[in-house]
């Protein structure tokens, strides 16, 4: 457990020393959200109708950005082999990577959610639900994406392949997340949708690191 904590701390320290990566993801999120009004016109009602799905889609795309380098640098300089030999298990290494990815990419997106929500004319009552839904959905994507990054490690065109593998599997998170935000915007209860999202996250929490660990152990 201490070793796992040290690994997580190392990942976070690395991310803090290169804050541009996190900022780039946030900027990408806001930019993609800002593209939607240009596509469908500035009518507030149309924007509000589209806002839940647009937020989810932008957030998932932004969270995908840093995934293709998740294991790359460590694999190149041999750190990954050392981590796998360290005795904490390949699945635990993958879990630490996923948690770090969420803290570094998913969490900053939550801070930017009100900005993107305001640009998309999302009702202010729905902002807390939007932040909760984005938090859970990006957590789910971090786990899935870690498995995807482990699978495409060393592949040709891995960066292109990764979204192709991960995005179809992330469809349930988009469905439940957008439904939750929509319900909150309509003055309904968002809780059941968020609970379903939480269930997805809870199912992925043990399974995705196991799959990622199995992929990392392939020599």
């Amino acid at each position: 457990m201490r070793a796992w904590g040290a690994l997580l701390a190392r990942e976070l320290r690395l991310a803090l020393r290169h804050p541009a990566d996190s900022l780039a993801a946030v900027l990408f999120f806001v930019l993609v959200a800002a593209l939607f009004p240009f596509g469908i016109g500035p009518v507030p009602e149309a924007l509000a109708r589209l806002a839940p799905g647009a937020l989810l889609a932008s957030a998932l795309l932004a969270a995908l950005l840093p995934l293709d380098r998740l294991f790359g640098a460590d694999a190149e300089d041999g750190t990954l082999d050392q981590l796998l030999l360290s005795g904490i298990g390949a699945a635990a290494v993958a879990l630490a990577k996923a948690v770090a990815h969420w803290l570094v990419t998913g969490l900053p997106l939550l801070v930017a959610t009100p900005i993107a929500g305001a640009m998309l004319n999302l009702a202010q009552e729905a902002w807390p639900a939007a932040m909760a839904a984005l938090g859970l959905a990006t957590g789910f994507l971090s786990l899935l994406g870690t498995a995807g990054a482990a699978l495409t490690l060393g592949a040709r065109r891995g960066g292109v392949l990764l979204p192709l593998l991960v995005l179809p599997l992330a469809i349930p998170a988009v469905i439940f997340g957008a439904a939750g935000i929509e319900a909150a915007a309509a003055g309904l209860e968002a809780r059941p949708y968020l609970l379903l999202l939480g269930a997805l996250l809870a199912a992925a929490l043990p399974l995705a690191p196991l799959a990622a660990g199995a992929a990392l152990r392939v020599e």
Binding site: A147, L151, T152, G154, A155, R156, R157, G158, L161, L165, A211, A214, A215, V218, E219
Partner: peptide, 15 residues
């Protein structure tokens, strides 16, 4: 996508 076909097969199986 892998130069090493066996690695590709393992990754595909996990996927």
């Amino acid at each position: 996508a892998f130069d090493d076909t066996e690695r590709g097969a393992r990754m595909g199986a996990i996927l």
